[in-house]
Amino acid sequence: MSSDLMSAAAGDDPAEGLHAVRSLRVLADRLEALHVERARRLGWPWQHIADVLGVTRQAVHKKYGKRFP
């Protein structure tokens, strides 16, 4: 994927590249939500999830605390 990714990211049509970036972001967000939910079900503490995601505990709790308590 990475060589293709580089070629599209450096491609000459900005619209295409930007569309791809946006979809990647949406995809990442959805995958994150699914995995956070699963981790919570498996009993992971927020701190642990935050460490793996590379964000603060507050950030991940604020984003998902209500949905996956």
């Binding site: 990714l5 599209a8 946006r22 979809s23 949406v26």
Partner: peptide, 17 residues
């Protein structure tokens, strides 16, 4: 395409996903 949470299969295919 303006929807903020849309997954564009074509755009992703364009970068090999």
């Amino acid at each position: 395409s303006l929807k903020t949470d849309s997954l564009d299969a074509d755009a992703l295919a364009g970068i090999g996903v």
